[in-house]
Design a protein around this nucleic acid. Sequence first.
DNA 1: GCTCGATTGAATCGTTCGTTTGACATTTTT
DNA 2: AAAAATGTCAAACGAACGATTCAATCGAGC
Lengths: 232, 232
Amino acid sequence: MREMTIPESGSKRKLLDAAELLFAEKGFEAVSVRDITQLAKTNVAAVNYHFGSRDALLTMVMMRYMTPVTEERLARIESLERKWSGKSVPLEEIIDALVRPLVGQVRKSELAERLFYKLTGRICAEQGDGLPPQIEDQFRQVGERFSKAFAKALPTVPPEELAWRIHFVIGGMIHMLTHQELFHRVSGGASGTPTMEATLSRFIHFAAAGLREGTVQEEAPAKKGPQATFDF
Amino acid sequence: MREMTIPESGSKRKLLDAAELLFAEKGFEAVSVRDITQLAKTNVAAVNYHFGSRDALLTMVMMRYMTPVTEERLARIESLERKWSGKSVPLEEIIDALVRPLVGQVRKSELAERLFYKLTGRICAEQGDGLPPQIEDQFRQVGERFSKAFAKALPTVPPEELAWRIHFVIGGMIHMLTHQELFHRVSGGASGTPTMEATLSRFIHFAAAGLREGTVQEEAPAKKGPQATFDF
DNA sequence: GCTCGATTGAATCGTTCGTTTGACATTTTT
DNA sequence: AAAAATGTCAAACGAACGATTCAATCGAGC
């Protein structure tokens, strides 16, 4: 095993790139392996050779996007809790740690910005049955971690009420990602990223206000309810 | 043309019922005309005979659900503005007028509750290209009407900021509808409707708080921006 | 030069899709 | 009663799907 000369012609990568572009543009169900291989300029057999099946390729595309997002989310929330050692982390910073990794990974992607957001939004919007178990695991992990952080930041909100509010926040986040192009087009300036940064700031303040609703200064009943799962 | 003896054996209705049930359960793309005709106990040709195409049937199913919702929404907002003649309508009541028709039509449907919510959520979650123009027209109509109401209720929020906040609200609403079963299962009591009523109340307060965020008592700049469209 | 595993390509598999056909039955109109 | 319209049915259409086969090709190690 001297050195990797050019053993891989990049066919596998080309397939992943083509697949993620098409999935983002048209949705996961609306893209055939023939569409993918045609854009990647390879053969239909290449998909099943490199990935085993169309579904496995789809899972790969999702994983390549969501894994760094999950890692950054968990790293950020842990960093926050270290920074505010013991004390509850400010709500806005928790939401930021949850959402920013989703929009921040755009730089590491070769996808156009609007396609990146669409793809991540599509992944998060999928139902339980339609998601590969690896992705679901990541969502569950993030969900448990951030649920605890939210609960600590909002001790006066009952657990079930809080679970619903988080649910609403997730929905707004997904909608922001999947439909942002519609908005940034009509209202947007020429620059891309600063616009999304402004949108992100808007969302964080919106979500924080909704989560905090009715909070004044009460006791925390903190009844331990069943843990709910989110599509983060 | 004496009287309608039994001219229609109900085949058309059976197809619509079967289609809406399957669409709600599995999504619009995952259901074939053979699935539908099998459940409706008719022939595959019946779909194209009665509706012309699968897409036309899909449109019919959507219209049968969304039309009364749109009408009730518009009726409610007009009733509210009559009630508060001239003055701005309270935010919570606007949101209620927007969301309650969606969850209220469940009584008029023969669909199981969770399926009803799923179906309406699916419709609202579809992208622009995937929606029939008739449905899009209804969304646009509702969007324009309620955008004005929100703008009047929140004069201190700049139009673009407000458009985004409404966007977030819609996302939360859709998520509440499509994923409510997951929540009502883990936390729910036996009774169905009161649980959804409680959820609706939670959502309204959440959305109102988010929409109001930062509002104190300022002047209204009210710069006329481009009208945005929502998937209501 | 040769072999052997890794990769690719063209052709094709069996299945399922939405749609269409034409024969047949039923009901309504003339 | 004849004719016309209306609805149903089994059968089949062409197209597209994911997956597979198998021969051809390529590059590295002996």
